[in-house]
Amino acid sequence: MNVRKQITAATLASSLAAALAMAAAPAVAAPKPMRADMDKCYGIALKADNDCAAGPGTTCAGTARVDYQGNSWKYVAKGTCTQIPTPKGPGSLTQKA
């Protein structure tokens, strides 16, 4: 005999309620939302690791062709950008040449 476990309407309801409780609890870490305490930091991203902007003719994120490209930026914690050292000098809140 094929014993197949059944999902009842009550199971669905209780599981969903439990899931919402778990998702709300801090134990299940939700991915970080976009926050206002991030700066766009230019000139620190490794190639293909920029979050956006890498000059004309590119399709933006992930397109920087060289490491620490001056016109590509990456999100970093607010206030830390200009303290990030790279072999090409610190990060910048504006585009670097």
Binding site: I7, T11, L12, S14, S15, L16, A18, A19, L20, M22, A23, V28, A29, A30
Partner: peptide, 10 residues
């Protein structure tokens, strides 16, 4: 089910 749903929601 609850744990998996929580994962998706979270």
């Amino acid at each position: 089910l609850a744990r998996n749903l929580a994962g998706l929601i979270g």
